[in-house]
Write a protein that binds this DNA or RNA. Sequence first.
DNA 1: CTTGACTTCCAAAACGTTTTGGTCTATAGT
DNA 2: ACTATAGACCAAAACGTTTTGGAAGTCAAG
Lengths: 328, 328
Amino acid sequence: MGKSVTTVSRALNDYDDVSADTKALIRHVAEEMGYTPNILAQRLRKRRADTIGLILPTFGPRFSDPFFSEFIAGIGNQAAELGFDLLVSTRPPGDKEMLAYQANIRGQRVDGFILVRTRRRDARIAYMLEAGFPFVAFGRTENHQAFPFVDEDGEYGMRMIVRHLTQEGHGRLAFIAAPDDLMFAHHRLQGFRAGLREAGIPIEEALVVQGDLSEKGGYEQARRLLDRPSPPTAIAACNDLMALGAISAARERGLVVGRDIAITGFDDIPMAEHSSPPLTTVHQPIYQIGQMVCQMLVGLLQGGEIEQDHIILKPSLVIRQSSIAEPR
Amino acid sequence: MGKSVTTVSRALNDYDDVSADTKALIRHVAEEMGYTPNILAQRLRKRRADTIGLILPTFGPRFSDPFFSEFIAGIGNQAAELGFDLLVSTRPPGDKEMLAYQANIRGQRVDGFILVRTRRRDARIAYMLEAGFPFVAFGRTENHQAFPFVDEDGEYGMRMIVRHLTQEGHGRLAFIAAPDDLMFAHHRLQGFRAGLREAGIPIEEALVVQGDLSEKGGYEQARRLLDRPSPPTAIAACNDLMALGAISAARERGLVVGRDIAITGFDDIPMAEHSSPPLTTVHQPIYQIGQMVCQMLVGLLQGGEIEQDHIILKPSLVIRQSSIAEPR
DNA sequence: CTTGACTTCCAAAACGTTTTGGTCTATAGT
DNA sequence: ACTATAGACCAAAACGTTTTGGAAGTCAAG
C-alpha cells in the first residue's frame, strides 16, 4: 500500500510522529485485510513474554480442588484484562517441579510467576529470590522472607471456628489437619490450638489427625476418629473437601451431622452451601485473591515497585447447619 | 568458546553434521553456563507457537466446575509431556468469545485449539473449519460436520440411568436438563426420553425442567419439581453438580434421599462418591479424555493426519445410595 | 597428483516486529 | 535569502534462534 513497515508499526501503536490521516488509512487497511501483529515477533523484540506462569502443585493426577479452579479463573481473567497470557502447568512437588520453574525462567518463557501453596521452607521461593525473578505468592513462609504476597489469616479463621464450636457447647474437638509443611495447613492448625487455649480446653493430641486435603482423606481420617473409644463431638477439618468426606463418614455411622456431631470446613467452596447438611466453614474471596495476586505481579513487572506488597486478608465465618444442633 | 552459533544450535539439536567431540564440548559448556535457548526466538523462527489454546466457556465469574479442572489437568500434563504449552482463558459464550479465538489464531499465538462444550450449531467450529485451523473438540455437533473429536455417549449413559431407575420401581421420573443448545445436554435429554420410551412409560413434559448446570440451579429446579401437586419419585439431573443441589433441596423438605426419592447425576466428579448420600451417576474418565484430546491435537499438528479421529466413549453406570431404597 | 566423497564447520539469510537515528519537506523566524 | 524548527516519514539494526548453501579439510580411489 506504499507505507513502510516502520510507519505501519508506529501508526498501529499510536505514536505521534505519524499524521492523523496516515494513521486512519493504515488502521483501515489493516482492519480490512485482517492484519494482526505477530505476537511472537513482538515478544522477541521486546524481550518480554507477556506471560505469567502458574505451576500447580498436585499429588495425584486427579487435580480437582474447586478451590484451585476458582483461583485460576481469577488470575486468568485478570491477566487477560491486562494483556498477559497465563501459562498453567501442574507438577508434583519435588525435583521435577523445580526443574519446571528453572526451565521456564531460563528460557524466558514467562515474565513472572505466581506461587501457590507456600511451604514452610520453600525451595521455589529461595530460588526466585536468589535469581531475582519477579513473583508474587499466595501464602507466606515460616521465616518471614521479604517478598510480595497475599495471604489469608488462616490462624484467625480457625480460631473463629473453634470459638463457634465451643459456644455451641462442644468440649471434645478433633482436627483433621494437612501436611504441616504447607504453610496454610500450619496456620490453620495453630489457629485450632490457639482457639482451644483461649477456651481453656486442654488439647487432646490423639484427636489431631492428618489427611491429604481430599474428600477421601477426610473420610478416612474421620472414620479413624469415630472409631475411637470416646469419639469427639465436633470435627474441624483443614479444608472443605475433607470436611465433606468427614460428613460422609459420620452419616455412614448413622450420625445426624449437626445434631449428633458438628463438622466444619475451611474455604467455602461453592459446594459447601449445597452439601447435606450445608457446611459451616470459613469464607475467603478466592476469585478476588487470584485477581489481586495477578494485579500485583503485573504491577511489579511494569512499574517495578508496588505500594502494598504484604496483604493479609481476614476471612469470615459462615455458619451453616453442619455445626448447629437446632436448624434456624 | 570459539564455536559459531550455527554449530551450537546444531549441536544442541543433535544434528549429525557435528562431531561427537564438539557436541559433547558444546553441551558441557552450555550446561555449565546455564544456557537455555530463548524459546521466543525459536518459536518465531519456526513459525510455531508450540502452544495449545483452551478457552473455557463460563457464565459467571465463578468457574468451579470440578469437571473442568480435571479436564484441564489431563490436557495440561499431556501437553507438557509432548513439549507444548497450554494457554487457558475463560470467556462467556458470545461475541467476545469468538473474538478471543480470532485474535489468538491471527496473532499466531497458538498452533491449535481444544474446544469444549460443543453447541448444536457451533460458531467456533464453523469458523475453524473455514479458516482451516487445527482443532480437536470434546463433543460433536448436530449436523455431523467432519472434524476430529472425542465424545462420550451421553445418550447411552442417560438411558442406563433411566433403566436403573425404572428397575428400582420408579414410574414418575423427572429430569433436570440444561440449555439444549449444548450438545452434551441435548444428548443426555434424548437419552432420558429414549430410556422412558424403552420402558414404555409415557413422558410427562411438566417434569422436564431446565437448570444452569450449577448446584444452585439444581437446587432451585428440584424445589420447583417437589412443589408440584404430585411430585416425581425420582429426579435425574443432567450433571452431578445439579444433582447435588437437588439432594440439598430434597433434604430440606425432610425427604430421605434414596428411600423417599431417588436422585441421580452424570459425570462422577470426585465429590459424587462422598456426598450424602453418595450419588448414583455415570462415570467417564475425564482426565484421560483430556489426555486423548491433547494427543490427537498434537498428532494433527505434527503428523498432519491421525488414524482415529472420531472417538465415542461408552460411559459406565455407577450405582450408589442416592438411588436405591435399601442400602447394601 | 588429481578427483570425488565425506566430514565438520560456519556465514548469512530469515522469522516479523520495534527502536534508533536519521532524511526530506514545508513553514517560520531573522 | 538563509537558517532553525517542526512534522511526516523511513532504512537499517536489533531481538535470538534455525535453516540454507556452501567452504574447508581429510581421506581413499584412480
